[in-house]
Design a protein around this nucleic acid. Sequence first.
DNA 1: GTGAAAGCGCTAACAA
DNA 2: TTGTTAGCGCTTTCAC
Lengths: 389, 389
Amino acid sequence: MTEAVSRPTLEAVAARAGVSRATVSRVVNGGDGVREPLAERVRQAVAELGYVPNQAARSLVTKRHDAVAVVIAEPETRVFADPFFALQLRGISKELTAHDNQLVLLLTEGRDDHARVARYLSGGHVDGALVFSLHLDDPLPGLIHDAGVPTVFGGRPGWGDDGGATGPARSAAKDPGVVYVDCDNRGGARAAVRHLVDLGRRRIAHLTGVLDQTSAVDRLDGYRDVMDEVPGGNDPRLVVESDFTPAGGERAMRELLDRCPDVDAVFAANDLTALGALRVLRASGRRVPEDVAVIGFDDMLPVAEEADPPLTTVRQDIEEMGRLMARLLLHGLSDGRDRTDARDRLDARDRKDGRDGADGRDRTGATADGPPPAGGVILPTTLIRRASA
Amino acid sequence: MTEAVSRPTLEAVAARAGVSRATVSRVVNGGDGVREPLAERVRQAVAELGYVPNQAARSLVTKRHDAVAVVIAEPETRVFADPFFALQLRGISKELTAHDNQLVLLLTEGRDDHARVARYLSGGHVDGALVFSLHLDDPLPGLIHDAGVPTVFGGRPGWGDDGGATGPARSAAKDPGVVYVDCDNRGGARAAVRHLVDLGRRRIAHLTGVLDQTSAVDRLDGYRDVMDEVPGGNDPRLVVESDFTPAGGERAMRELLDRCPDVDAVFAANDLTALGALRVLRASGRRVPEDVAVIGFDDMLPVAEEADPPLTTVRQDIEEMGRLMARLLLHGLSDGRDRTDARDRLDARDRKDGRDGADGRDRTGATADGPPPAGGVILPTTLIRRASA
DNA sequence: GTGAAAGCGCTAACAA
DNA sequence: TTGTTAGCGCTTTCAC
């Protein structure tokens, strides 16, 4: 039972290099203001001793942690039924790693965890937070926003979007202090529906997602944007509420066929819903895409590719969303200000990747008036054409 | 631009409660040995000031971090094409949270990251590591094992299993210092194949996974266990190597039909592979399960449920695997020893969940002789019967 | 440019 | 039982 070898300290390195602790510290942290021969000796000593700075000691004085929390609120199992968060995490991780930041993962299991998360975030353990919340009435984003931690949201938060009977009386669209990254749900939906129109379809239905999620609302809005211009397009019977699941898609599709047997195209809120619709259509003897064209959303692999027929769908660059979230947060942090959010630096973000397309200013039109808020960054979507439409 | 309000320190709480810092510290850390009236006053002060301990300062002296790293080596995209890690993470997170530990997520992108991860782990930033490695020749597990951090592996590490021309000359089966959690791949495979036998099938084929992963090897071994007892069962043509993907499943299935047109059952290494097989079978005019029965592995939703026909498959409790990994690590940690692994406490682990079934001692039989190593915990699998077999 | 010294906020002996 | 005291390993003025 030998004692675990304690790792070398600054002191040890200093002794070895024959300099003071301060000098070693300088070299370790960039080496400005240390003459070359000395610096080299220090680097030698560091290498020989295998010195690694003690992060705790460093944080204690700098008050920085080089760590970012990723909060994933998980009100439902669906969250983990698709690779969405995994991809997002990957993007975040890459960006964080590139900036020598650690990723602290906070998964919540219902409301009991909210207090825990809020406490952790305001406890000053991390420099910032990346938060995913799915539901309009989720109190977590509000709690976090109030915790005074620099935060970037994944997906447009929906606080009080529609008058918000349940949520805080605050709207993302009206609170410029909120920074978020989302994909162009509305634009993607528009592209999908336009494609169906171009295909000559006229009785185009929409199976919605869970409408307490902004992504579902935005996709519905995009559908309406196009349908409003199609003669007879705003037939309310063509919109059936569903829930992002295959079973829900089946249910909705059955109801749709009941209401509108003449439907000739379906835009489903996501690929899973489309899958259910596909099955009901087949069972009803309809051919896809000949009789009814179908388009999904997400390009969730392998679902979309392996569907029968393979699904035409709207792809979003999920990994890039994650990467961008991290980038925005880090930029806000290195800004050195004491603002509680990262939006100050929004305009200085890397534009070289050309991600902020013409649709970058899209918002749910319902309540938005005046110039759009500057807090959101919207990534473009792409229509992936396969066999179903 | 007001300064960010600095959070209250122990000192402040002590002053407010009219006691010494030490007393506050005691109360905050469990409160043993502090008389009730005093303790109450301290708790008051803590609440009023909203005091949260500074983790950095605490770690600096205790050398503990209450943080665990989760390392996910990601040699291929497949990793994120299924909810496997997400579920695992959920289990880990729950257990860690229950013990007030933080989860630091380390995602690796190929070998360049190995050094980074190893450095981080030996840098003493976390108390332990939970590591997922998929490939037999992955050097990462070895590096981490050598880093001197208490570690539990997710999935049986395969170091040098088969003589290991590439990997370190070390075998998990021979190194009792290695702790891992896996599902009963071999037993699950046996159950699947036995089920097919019970169904009266005799020409039972196996489409393997990527054979440099222990899970694939173990499933193949399980298949062989049963087939060795079936007359004519060890026809090598019945085993086709595949790669855990739908496309690979298609390829393998086509080759299988070429080799053995009389096949009447297929055990696929996972659900995705089964999906591909299903498609080829259908295209070839065979009915499932009437002509050819099909069984998958993983019970990956929605793939298995939404397959046509819905897939009979072997389910593993992925979340429980994660939970158990964390539990083992934490137990090893609280052991207070300075051993570099967690296996010392293996025998003291919670047995109340009754997870260590009769198959808990299963190993790849190839090189294993003598008593099985004590380092692994194997969770049971369940055969989920649906329509395909 | 380099070193000496003063803490960051906390825990853990040790005294009282 | 409670308080006093000495650091944990590092960064950062401030002299030199």
